[in-house]
Protein backbone atom coordinates (compact mmCIF):
# COMPACT_ATOMS: atom_id res chain seq x y z
CA UNK A 1 0.00 0.00 0.00
CA UNK A 2 1.17 3.49 -0.83
CA UNK A 3 2.28 5.13 2.41
CA UNK A 4 1.47 8.59 1.15
CA UNK A 5 -2.12 7.80 0.43
CA UNK A 6 -4.82 9.39 2.53
CA UNK A 7 -7.79 7.09 2.96
CA UNK A 8 -11.26 8.44 3.60
CA UNK A 9 -14.28 6.51 4.80
CA UNK A 10 -17.70 8.09 4.74
CA UNK A 11 -20.16 5.25 4.44
CA UNK A 12 -21.03 3.97 7.87
CA UNK A 13 -24.01 1.99 8.97
CA UNK A 14 -24.17 3.14 12.57
CA UNK A 15 -25.35 0.45 14.92
CA UNK A 16 -26.03 1.33 18.55
CA UNK A 17 -27.16 -1.29 21.02
CA UNK A 18 -29.92 -0.09 23.33
CA UNK A 19 -28.23 -1.94 26.18
CA UNK A 20 -25.15 0.26 25.91
CA UNK A 21 -27.27 3.42 25.97
CA UNK A 22 -29.14 2.39 29.09
CA UNK A 23 -25.90 1.50 30.83
CA UNK A 24 -24.57 4.98 30.01
CA UNK A 25 -27.81 6.46 31.33
CA UNK A 26 -27.12 4.83 34.67
CA UNK A 27 -29.47 1.86 34.58
CA UNK A 28 -26.73 -0.74 34.85
CA UNK A 29 -27.14 -4.00 33.00
CA UNK A 30 -30.63 -4.83 34.29
CA UNK A 31 -33.28 -3.82 31.73
CA UNK A 32 -36.04 -4.46 34.28
CA UNK A 33 -35.34 -1.08 35.90
CA UNK A 34 -35.82 1.00 32.76
CA UNK A 35 -39.01 2.99 32.79
CA UNK A 36 -41.26 3.32 29.74
CA UNK A 37 -40.69 7.07 29.37
CA UNK A 38 -36.91 6.63 29.11
CA UNK A 39 -37.35 3.75 26.64
CA UNK A 40 -39.60 5.89 24.48
CA UNK A 41 -37.25 8.87 24.59
CA UNK A 42 -34.29 6.72 23.55
CA UNK A 43 -36.37 5.14 20.78
CA UNK A 44 -37.42 8.57 19.46
CA UNK A 45 -33.89 9.95 19.66
CA UNK A 46 -32.53 6.93 17.79
CA UNK A 47 -35.09 7.47 15.04
CA UNK A 48 -33.85 10.97 14.31
CA UNK A 49 -30.20 10.08 14.81
CA UNK A 50 -29.31 9.46 11.18
CA UNK A 51 -30.27 13.02 10.20
CA UNK A 52 -27.86 14.39 12.80
CA UNK A 53 -24.81 12.32 11.94
CA UNK A 54 -22.10 13.12 9.43
CA UNK A 55 -19.76 10.16 10.04
CA UNK A 56 -16.36 10.39 8.43
CA UNK A 57 -12.92 8.95 8.94
CA UNK A 58 -9.55 9.76 7.53
CA UNK A 59 -6.46 7.59 7.97
CA UNK A 60 -3.00 7.03 6.64
CA UNK A 61 -0.69 4.04 6.89
CA UNK A 62 2.96 4.98 7.38
CA UNK A 63 6.13 2.94 7.39
CA UNK A 64 7.63 3.06 10.87
CA UNK A 65 10.60 5.00 9.50
CA UNK A 66 8.25 7.70 8.21
CA UNK A 67 6.67 8.28 11.64
CA UNK A 68 8.03 10.53 14.39
CA UNK A 69 9.30 7.27 15.99
CA UNK A 70 7.47 7.84 19.23
CA UNK A 71 8.07 4.92 21.66
CA UNK A 72 4.40 3.98 21.27
CA UNK A 73 5.20 2.85 17.69
CA UNK A 74 8.14 0.68 18.81
CA UNK A 75 8.57 -2.62 16.95
CA UNK A 76 5.85 -1.77 14.42
CA UNK A 77 6.55 -2.30 10.74
CA UNK A 78 3.84 0.17 9.85
CA UNK A 79 1.57 2.51 11.76
CA UNK A 80 -1.97 3.54 10.86
CA UNK A 81 -3.01 6.97 12.14
CA UNK A 82 -6.68 7.85 12.11
CA UNK A 83 -9.16 10.58 12.99
CA UNK A 84 -12.89 9.93 12.81
CA UNK A 85 -16.00 11.87 13.77
CA UNK A 86 -19.77 11.96 13.69
CA UNK A 87 -19.74 15.68 12.85
CA UNK A 88 -21.09 18.68 14.72
CA UNK A 89 -24.84 18.27 14.05
CA UNK A 90 -25.65 16.06 16.99
CA UNK A 91 -23.73 18.20 19.47
CA UNK A 92 -25.54 21.31 18.33
CA UNK A 93 -28.92 19.59 18.57
CA UNK A 94 -28.11 18.32 22.06
CA UNK A 95 -27.00 21.78 23.26
CA UNK A 96 -30.15 23.39 21.91
CA UNK A 97 -32.33 20.89 23.76
CA UNK A 98 -30.49 21.52 27.02
CA UNK A 99 -30.83 25.28 26.58
CA UNK A 100 -34.59 24.76 26.20
CA UNK A 101 -34.71 22.85 29.51
CA UNK A 102 -35.14 19.57 27.62
CA UNK A 103 -32.20 18.28 29.59
CA UNK A 104 -33.04 14.60 29.45
CA UNK A 105 -33.59 14.73 25.68
CA UNK A 106 -30.27 16.53 25.31
CA UNK A 107 -28.49 14.09 27.58
CA UNK A 108 -29.91 11.08 25.74
CA UNK A 109 -28.84 12.56 22.41
CA UNK A 110 -25.35 13.24 23.76
CA UNK A 111 -25.18 9.64 25.01
CA UNK A 112 -26.23 8.33 21.60
CA UNK A 113 -23.57 10.56 20.07
CA UNK A 114 -20.86 9.06 22.27
CA UNK A 115 -21.91 5.58 21.21
CA UNK A 116 -22.15 6.60 17.56
CA UNK A 117 -18.63 8.06 17.64
CA UNK A 118 -17.41 4.87 19.26
CA UNK A 119 -19.12 2.82 16.55
CA UNK A 120 -17.48 4.88 13.79
CA UNK A 121 -14.12 4.30 15.49
CA UNK A 122 -14.89 0.59 15.87
CA UNK A 123 -15.82 0.19 12.20
CA UNK A 124 -12.78 2.17 11.03
CA UNK A 125 -10.56 0.14 13.34
CA UNK A 126 -11.95 -3.06 11.80
CA UNK A 127 -11.36 -1.73 8.27
CA UNK A 128 -7.77 -0.77 9.07
CA UNK A 129 -7.14 -4.14 10.75
CA UNK A 130 -8.22 -5.83 7.52
CA UNK A 131 -5.75 -3.65 5.61
CA UNK A 132 -3.00 -4.84 7.94
CA UNK A 133 -3.94 -8.46 7.30
CA UNK A 134 -3.94 -7.82 3.53
CA UNK A 135 -0.34 -6.67 3.98
CA UNK A 136 0.49 -9.84 5.86
CA UNK A 137 0.90 -7.91 9.13
CA UNK A 138 -0.73 -8.19 12.56
CA UNK A 139 -2.67 -5.12 13.78
CA UNK A 140 -2.50 -3.96 17.40
CA UNK A 141 -5.49 -2.72 19.34
CA UNK A 142 -6.36 0.90 18.67
CA UNK A 143 -4.84 3.37 21.05
CA UNK A 144 -5.60 7.10 21.46
CA UNK A 145 -3.39 10.03 22.46
CA UNK A 146 -3.76 10.78 26.17
CA UNK A 147 -3.44 7.18 27.23
CA UNK A 148 -0.37 5.56 28.77
CA UNK A 149 2.91 6.90 27.39
CA UNK A 150 1.23 8.52 24.38
CA UNK A 151 0.76 12.04 25.63
CA UNK A 152 -2.30 14.08 24.64
CA UNK A 153 0.07 16.55 22.97
CA UNK A 154 0.77 13.89 20.34
CA UNK A 155 -2.61 14.86 18.90
CA UNK A 156 -0.69 17.62 17.14
CA UNK A 157 1.34 14.97 15.29
CA UNK A 158 -1.82 13.21 14.06
CA UNK A 159 -3.27 16.51 12.90
CA UNK A 160 -0.03 17.31 11.07
CA UNK A 161 -0.10 14.00 9.21
CA UNK A 162 -3.84 13.83 8.48
CA UNK A 163 -6.10 16.34 6.68
CA UNK A 164 -8.56 16.51 9.57
CA UNK A 165 -10.11 19.68 8.17
CA UNK A 166 -11.42 17.60 5.25
CA UNK A 167 -13.75 15.82 7.67
CA UNK A 168 -14.53 18.95 9.69
CA UNK A 169 -12.37 18.22 12.72
CA UNK A 170 -10.02 20.74 14.32
CA UNK A 171 -7.73 20.71 17.30
CA UNK A 172 -7.94 23.23 20.12
CA UNK A 173 -4.89 24.73 21.84
CA UNK A 174 -5.40 22.18 24.61
CA UNK A 175 -5.41 19.29 22.09
CA UNK A 176 -9.14 18.66 22.31
CA UNK A 177 -10.98 17.78 19.15
CA UNK A 178 -13.93 19.77 17.86
CA UNK A 179 -16.49 18.29 17.24
CA UNK A 180 -16.22 16.62 20.64
CA UNK A 181 -17.67 13.39 19.27
CA UNK A 182 -14.48 12.59 17.41
CA UNK A 183 -11.93 9.84 18.02
CA UNK A 184 -8.27 9.77 17.07
CA UNK A 185 -6.09 6.71 17.31
CA UNK A 186 -3.20 4.67 16.02
CA UNK A 187 -2.92 1.01 15.16
CA UNK A 188 0.53 -0.55 14.96
CA UNK A 189 1.09 -3.23 12.32
CA UNK A 190 3.52 -5.94 13.46
CA UNK A 191 5.20 -8.76 11.59
CA UNK A 192 4.79 -11.06 14.58
CA UNK A 193 1.41 -12.02 16.04
CA UNK A 194 2.99 -12.26 19.50
CA UNK A 195 3.76 -8.55 19.50
CA UNK A 196 0.10 -7.57 19.53
CA UNK A 197 -2.45 -7.93 22.33
CA UNK A 198 -5.33 -7.87 19.85
CA UNK A 199 -7.38 -11.06 19.79
CA UNK A 200 -7.89 -12.77 16.46
CA UNK A 201 -10.79 -15.09 17.03
Amino acid sequence: MNSDKIHKLEKFNINIEDRRIFIRLGYGSSSGNINDQAKEMVFKAKNKLSSLLQPNAVFKILDYEATNKHPIFKDAKKVALCICTIGIGLEEASSKLIEKNKILDGFILDTLGSEAAEDVARQTDKYIAEKAKEMGLWPSKRFSPGYSIWDIQEQAYLFKILPAEDIGVRLTDSFMMVPRKSVSFRINFYDDKNKTSRSFS
Binding site: L25, G26, Y27, N33, I34, N35, Q37, A38, M41, N101, K102, I103, L104, F107, I108
Partner: peptide
Protein backbone atom coordinates in the same frame (compact mmCIF):
# COMPACT_ATOMS: atom_id res chain seq x y z
CA UNK B 1 -34.93 6.15 40.69
CA UNK B 2 -32.20 6.31 38.07
CA UNK B 3 -30.57 9.33 36.46
CA UNK B 4 -33.22 9.84 33.71
CA UNK B 5 -36.08 9.92 36.25
CA UNK B 6 -34.18 12.39 38.37
CA UNK B 7 -33.37 14.62 35.40
CA UNK B 8 -37.07 14.60 34.45
CA UNK B 9 -37.95 15.74 37.95
CA UNK B 10 -35.33 18.50 37.76
CA UNK B 11 -36.78 19.65 34.43
CA UNK B 12 -40.25 19.87 36.00
CA UNK B 13 -38.93 21.91 38.88
CA UNK B 14 -37.12 24.30 36.53
CA UNK B 15 -40.19 24.65 34.30
CA UNK B 16 -42.42 25.44 37.27
CA UNK B 17 -39.91 27.93 38.64
CA UNK B 18 -39.75 29.74 35.29
Amino acid sequence: YFLPELISSAECMTSAMK
